[in-house]
């Protein structure tokens, strides 16, 4: 018997479904330390690999280069430079943003890694790679211990 294929679009029907999956994600040793210090002390903590002479931000307990264990914590200055950035014109649902968001990877002096966040108090067309920026935190009372405790990074005026 030959195969009868569907030849009318009106005859094609899908089943619609969704996956309600809810969970939590453990911060772990390094995440706990990082977010506790952001929330309570307003400072960025990194973890140092003495073997590779690399300081990790965000911190972690292992080195991705030598696989060594990292137990040395360092405070990182809250000023860095824009390593790269984009001007996002669409939101997560694909809708156009009325106000585009500048998203950047901010790197810190002597640090391997950095932080991804938005830039504020700047026009998108004024942003450049290498621009000096500083971390702006939410007021202490509004911090919850998350990456959103950082409000944004803003350019440092010369």
């Amino acid at each position: 018997m030959p195969l009868d294929k569907v030849t009318q679009v009106a005859q094609t029907k899908p089943w619609h479904g969704s996956i309600p999956v809810y969970g939590q994600y453990t911060f772990g040793i390094a995440g706990e330390r990082f977010f506790r210090d952001i929330k309570d002390k307003g400072r960025i903590m990194g973890a140092k690999c003495a073997e590779c002479n690399l300081v990790y931000v965000p911190p972690r307990i292992y080195c991705e280069r030598c696989f060594g264990e990292l137990a040395k914590w360092l405070e990182i200055p809250n000023r860095g430079v824009v390593h790269t950035f984009t001007v996002a014109h669409a939101d997560l649902d694909g809708n156009r943003l009325e106000e585009p968001i500048v998203v950047a990877l901010v790197k810190f002096d002597g640090v391997y890694g950095g932080l991804v966040h938005r830039l504020g108090e700047v026009e998108p067309d004024k942003v450049t790679i290498g621009m000096a920026v500083e971390m702006m935190l939410k007021p202490k009372a509004k911090r919850t211990g998350s990456i959103l405790d950082i409000d944004y990074f803003k350019p440092i005026r010369a």
């Binding site: 996002a88 950047a104 991804v116 938005r118 998350s146």
Partner: peptide, 19 residues
């Protein structure tokens, strides 16, 4: 923990890489 809570459209990564 570090990226997803920002809730950006994930294609921002391609924009940053291209730049």
């Amino acid at each position: 923990v570090y990226n997803k809570p920002l809730s950006y459209n994930p294609y921002f990564i391609a924009g940053m890489e291209m730049n």
